[in-house]
Amino acid sequence: MAKTLRRLITSLAAAVAAVGLMTTAPASASTADDVSPFVVGGSRVSTSTYPWVVYLATSSGGQFCGGTLVGATKVVTAAHCVSGRSASSTRVVHRRDDKQSTAGTVATVSRIWVHPSYRTASSGYDVAVLTLGTSLPSPYLPLATPSDTALYAAGTNATILGWGTTSSGGSASRYLLGATVPVTSDATCRTAYSNYSATAMVCAGYPQGGVDTCQGDSGGPLVAGGKLIGATSFGRGCAQAGYPGVYSRIATYYSEITAQL
């Protein structure tokens, strides 16, 4: 079963073709066969509506992952996006709907925290926190807490966002895209992925597929009830029937993330 990081590696190549800015491959490329996502079946949305969604870029401007502003200087993303990367080679782009524009702010990163138990996305612990070199005066998104069990109930509508590809292996989107997907049951996700952990992960997607995150969306938000409940992690292809997207379960890592804020 081919799993894709969501979605990182394929999105890097797509970013080169679509934007022409990618010059540096991520140090975590060795885990390419472990992960993949961008918003398939989505529509164009704006950072005016979702002011806390950001994307990660190389120092030369190439977008490779997503993230969520959870404090004035803090961004939650996926560990597989930044594991092995240096802070000096990483940028966070805020309030830029169109990747080809100069809108918004490009913030430097002063520190990268990767969950110490992270090894591969499909093993769990796929969370990281970036500390920015400058404060971003913007609304930020609260984290789901261990008591927010209702937000993880099957059928809960959740929002996915990203600048990644719109089909598996396709070109990255120039614009921010968003979509709504239902949270799936643990049983459904376990059927799709034998390595699924209900403690470490949460799945979202339609049984028939068609809407999903994809390459380049890794680290981006899964949002329900006005809170960050997941960070885009991995999946089998993108938007395939029977294979929902897999997200890091933020509530599980609440204490460890907040310790970094």
Rank of each mutant, 00 (worst) to 15 (best):
S194A: 14
A18C: 09
V76F: 02
G155P: 11
V92F: 00
A239S: 10
V106I: 13
S101D: 03
Q260V: 09
C189T: 13
G42P: 10
A192H: 07
L69F: 01
G71L: 01
S101Q: 05
S168N: 15
A200I: 01
T149L: 03
Y118P: 15
V16R: 15
S36A: 10
A128K: 09
A57Q: 06
A32E: 06
V129M: 10
T73A: 09
A14P: 12
R119S: 15
Y253F: 13
A29I: 04
S46D: 01
G178D: 03
T188W: 00
A32S: 09
T258E: 04
Q215E: 07
K74L: 06
L151I: 07
R111T: 14
L5T: 12
A13T: 08
D186S: 09
T166I: 07
G42Q: 06
P116S: 05
S185R: 07
P116G: 01
L176V: 08
S168T: 15
L176N: 11
T131V: 09
G225T: 11
A192D: 05
S168K: 11
P26K: 04
S60T: 15
D33S: 14
V127T: 12
R96V: 06
A198D: 04
S171Q: 10
T188R: 12
Q100Y: 03
G225E: 01
T159I: 15
S46W: 01
S83L: 02
L12F: 01
A78L: 04
A179S: 13
G219D: 08
A224K: 14
G162V: 05
G20P: 13
A32G: 05
A251G: 08
T120E: 02
V127G: 06
P116F: 00
V127K: 07
D34S: 12
T159A: 09
A200E: 12
F234M: 06
I229W: 01
S46L: 03
L143G: 11
L151Q: 05
G210N: 11
V75A: 06
L151R: 10
T184N: 14
G62W: 01
S168E: 13
R119T: 15
S36N: 14
T47Y: 00
C81N: 10
S101H: 06
V40D: 05
T145K: 13
L177R: 14
G209D: 02
Y152C: 09
S110Y: 00
T49G: 12
T58H: 03
G205P: 13
G162C: 08
S43A: 11
I250A: 07
L132M: 08
Y193T: 12
G20T: 07
R44F: 00
D97Q: 11
T4Y: 11
G67Q: 10
R190H: 13
A192S: 15
G205E: 02
